Simulated scan of single mutants.
Amino acid sequence: MHAEENKNGAGTEAPHPDEATQAAPDPQVESAPADEAVRLKEQVSQLKDQLLRALAETENVRRRAERDREEASKFAVGKFARDMVSVADNLRRALEAVLPEQRSADSALENLMVGIEATERQLSAALERAGIQRMEALGQPFDPNFHQVMFEVENSGKPGGTIVQVLQDGYTISGRLLREAMVGVAKRDGSEAPGHLDTHA
């Protein structure tokens, strides 16, 4: 009889419910750790990108601040520099106001002129140390970026637009225009190419 039961399978025990659950694991449970790993990986990538952006922005801010500090240091003396070149103008006018024969005829005047010349040289050296340079304008072509034309001169024998007289020297500070030169230029004749001069006569 037992043989018949085993043959027909009537004597086989049914699997326990817990054992059936273990035998067929839930696919959602298995995929949960994988999904979490992907999410964490994406989060790490985002944080890394944000960090790199923050570092780049910090470096840009540092460079801008350094550049602004250099610019402020370089050009903060602009007004003072313009005042000093005005002093240089007055010294030059004083020297040009006295004729050579007047100097040679009066020893006191000669001594005064020698003192003014020495002061002018010292001032010029101080300006150069501060990055302030006088521009050579005489004989140069007119450049509206650096020159202000006060008048035109006819029959100068120079090509039109050439600076033939300097009324006031121009200066630069650290390569940047501090004060434009006031000049007179040769007038163009009919045979020369037309050109525009910004005259302020």
Rank of each mutant, 00 (worst) to 15 (best):
H2S: 13
A3V: 11
E5T: 12
K7W: 12
N8D: 04
G9S: 05
G9E: 07
A10E: 06
G11Y: 07
T12Q: 14
E13C: 10
A14W: 07
P15H: 02
Q22H: 13
P25I: 11
D26I: 02
D26W: 03
E30W: 12
E30S: 09
S31M: 15
S31C: 08
A32E: 04
A34L: 11
R39F: 13
L40E: 06
V44Q: 02
A54M: 02
A56Q: 14
A56D: 14
V61G: 01
R62F: 03
R64A: 09
R64Q: 13
R67Q: 05
K74H: 11
G78N: 11
K79D: 15
R82A: 14
R82L: 15
D83W: 05
M84R: 03
D89F: 01
N90W: 07
N90G: 06
L95F: 15
E96H: 05
A97M: 12
Q102I: 02
R103K: 03
S104W: 11
S107N: 00
L112Y: 09
L112I: 09
G115P: 00
G115T: 00
E117G: 00
R121N: 05
S124Q: 10
A125V: 06
R129D: 15
A137I: 01
A137P: 00
L138D: 10
P144R: 13
H147V: 10
Q148I: 11
V149R: 14
M150C: 07
M150S: 08
V153E: 04
K158W: 04
Q165M: 07
V166R: 08
D169L: 07
G175A: 09
R188L: 08
S191I: 12
S191A: 15
E192L: 04
A193Y: 13
A193C: 12
A193R: 14
P194C: 13
H196V: 15
L197H: 10
H200C: 09
